[in-house]
């Protein structure tokens, strides 16, 4: 479920309905993933899941999988 919603946000922000992200996807894999897209993405993800991601955590994510795990953890009410 989190993965589906993340995928949707990625597709919207990149404007590409065929974009598929996996656990190992990172900024290096998507050519148009620049700093502007990144900030939009972070905002859209925070908005989609109703969370605020701390700056330190944000800098620590190496790929989509790590971010997803973090969102799922937050979803448990921790």
């Amino acid at each position: 479920m989190v993965a589906d919603r993340l995928q949707q946000v990625f597709r919207e922000i990149f404007g590409d309905e065929t974009l598929t992200v996996s656990d190992t996807t990172s900024a290096a894999d998507v050519p148009s993933w620049d700093s502007l897209v990144h900030i939009n993405l972070v905002y859209a993800i925070e908005n989609e899941f109703g969370i605020q991601i701390e700056d330190e955590r944000l800098a620590s994510f190496k790929n989509v999988g790590e971010m997803q795990a973090y969102i799922e953890e937050r979803g448990k009410g921790g």
């Binding site: 949707q8 919207e12 922000i13 404007g15 939009n40 905002y43 859209a44 908005n47 989609e48």
Partner: peptide, 12 residues
């Protein structure tokens, strides 16, 4: 108003 939707709308 959400950014993701508008961004997708802009491309479409």
């Amino acid at each position: 108003d959400d950014l993701a939707g508008w961004t997708a709308a802009a491309q479409l």
